[in-house]
């Protein structure tokens, strides 16, 4: 099976600083892939390259089969993206936000109409469809933002700390949406600071000082490091970091 993401010695330098240092990994189609690392380890820089927003200094990477150095526009069409900070337009309604983003991806009116009602039903937002997004509670906004990010049925969705600050119940509802998306064949690439969420991933990579410090299933990582939780795996790895954030 073709991989959703492949990188080979992917590197990004800023002046004399090597933010991402020759990372090599593969993400399988339909996989939930956790991308962890301490602040400053190089996660954001790596993710920006994979989304076609930043050119690699050297090395290679493909996303959905397209080259991140030469086919960035094709990549952007094949992916969805959502971050904690980037949200929807607060002064548009739920329905208008969906129509706007789906329109940008060139989806037909019939597709948008049919899928909008399905998504609203799934999120139980039917009665809020014509309310301004700004009036929704944060947790609903994040779930809606995720649904909008995958509305155009991308091959891969990138989620940058999607559950930061979200209450524990909504955080779990959010992960149910992730599982459903993965069940529909969408590859999920997700960063988080919640170590319990690392357990929900099929495989997890942990970046340390611009390199991949470890990559395995949560079970495999715990066995390798001889500990009981992902929290301890993370602390063991990140403690060894030279590029301290503090």
């Amino acid at each position: 099976m073709q991989d959703a993401i492949t990188t080979r010695n992917l590197t990004k330098t800023f002046g004399s600083f090597t933010a991402v240092d020759a990372i090599t990994f593969h993400v399988k189609k339909g996989e939930i892939f956790g991308f962890l690392g301490a602040n400053g380890a190089g996660k954001t820089t790596a993710m920006r390259m994979l989304c076609g927003l930043s050119f690699p200094t050297s090395g290679k990477a493909t996303v959905a089969g397209f080259d991140v150095a030469t086919e960035t526009e094709k990549i952007k069409r094949s992916i969805g993206y959502m971050s904690q900070k980037f949200s929807l337009y607060e002064d548009l309604t739920v329905r208008e936000n969906i129509r706007f983003y789906a329109g940008i991806y060139g989806k037909s009116r019939a597709f948008i109409r049919e899928k909008t009602s399905r998504v609203l039903q799934q999120l139980r937002l039917e009665n809020e469809a014509d309310k301004l997004v700004g009036a929704l509670p944060l947790g609903w906004k994040q779930k809606l933002a995720f649904s909008v990010a995958i509305f155009h049925e991308p091959e891969i969705v990138f989620l940058d700390e999607p559950t930061g600050g979200v209450d524990p119940v909504t955080r779990r509802e959010f992960w149910n949406l992730i599982y459903e998306a993965a069940g529909d064949g969408i590859t999920v690439f997700v960063t988080t600071h919640y170590m319990d969420e690392a357990e929900y991933c099929d495989r997890v990579s942990i970046m340390v000082d611009g390199k991949i410090g470890a990559l395995d299933s949560p079970k495999g990582l715990k066995e390798t490091f001889g500990v009981n939780s992902m929290d301890e795996v993370f602390l063991k790895l990140a403690r060894g970091a030279k590029r301290s954030d503090g």
């Binding site: 602040n39 930061g164 600071h193 170590m195 954030d245 503090g246």
Partner: peptide, 11 residues
């Protein structure tokens, strides 16, 4: 500690 990684949070 919001948005701070697990190591810095502990510190």
């Amino acid at each position: 500690t919001t948005g701070v990684d697990a190591v810095s949070r502990k510190e």
